[in-house]
Simulated scan of single mutants.
Amino acid sequence: MSWKGLSSGEACSDDAGWSGEPHPDIFVPRAVRDAAGPEPIRPVWRNEAAGVTFQVGVGIDRRFVKWSPPGGIDLTGEAARLRWAAAHVTVPLILGMGSDDQGSTLITAGLPGENAVTARWKADPAKAVAAIGAGLRELHEAAPASTCPFDWTQPARLGEILSGAGRLDPGDWHPEHQDLTVELALARLEHPPDVDRAVVCHGDACAPNTLLADDGTVSGRVDLGALGVADRWADLAIATWSTNWNYGPGWERPLLEAYGIEPDPERTAYYRLLWDLGPRRLRT
Rank of each mutant, 00 (worst) to 15 (best):
A131W: 05
R30E: 14
R137E: 06
I132R: 01
F27I: 02
L82E: 01
A145R: 09
G51D: 11
P29K: 10
G133S: 07
V117E: 06
Q102R: 10
P24M: 07
A126W: 04
N115T: 12
G98M: 11
G77A: 14
A142H: 12
V52T: 15
H23T: 11
P149N: 08
R81E: 08
P149W: 06
D101F: 06
A36Q: 09
E39A: 15
H88R: 12
A50V: 00
W45E: 02
R120E: 14
H88I: 00
C148Q: 04
D100M: 07
D34F: 01
H88D: 00
G57S: 10
A85S: 14
I94Q: 07
P92K: 07
P38R: 11
H23W: 06
S146G: 12
E114H: 11
G72H: 02
A128S: 13
K66L: 03
E138F: 05
E78A: 04
G133V: 07
R63Y: 12
I107W: 01
D101I: 11
P92R: 05
H88W: 15
T105R: 06
A36F: 08
K122T: 15
V44C: 09
T53V: 15
S99M: 07
V89W: 07
T105F: 08
G51R: 10
T108D: 03
A80M: 11
P29V: 03
V89Y: 08
K66P: 02
C148E: 04
A130L: 01
L82T: 02
V56A: 04
A86D: 06
V44G: 05
G51Y: 10
T147E: 14
G57L: 09
L95Y: 03
A85P: 02
N47W: 12
L75N: 02
V89R: 11
R42F: 01
G135M: 08
W45L: 10
D34L: 13
P40I: 05
R120F: 12
C148M: 09
P43S: 06
A134H: 09
G51F: 10
V28L: 05
P112G: 14
G20W: 06
I73Y: 00
R46I: 09
A79I: 00
W45I: 02
V129T: 11
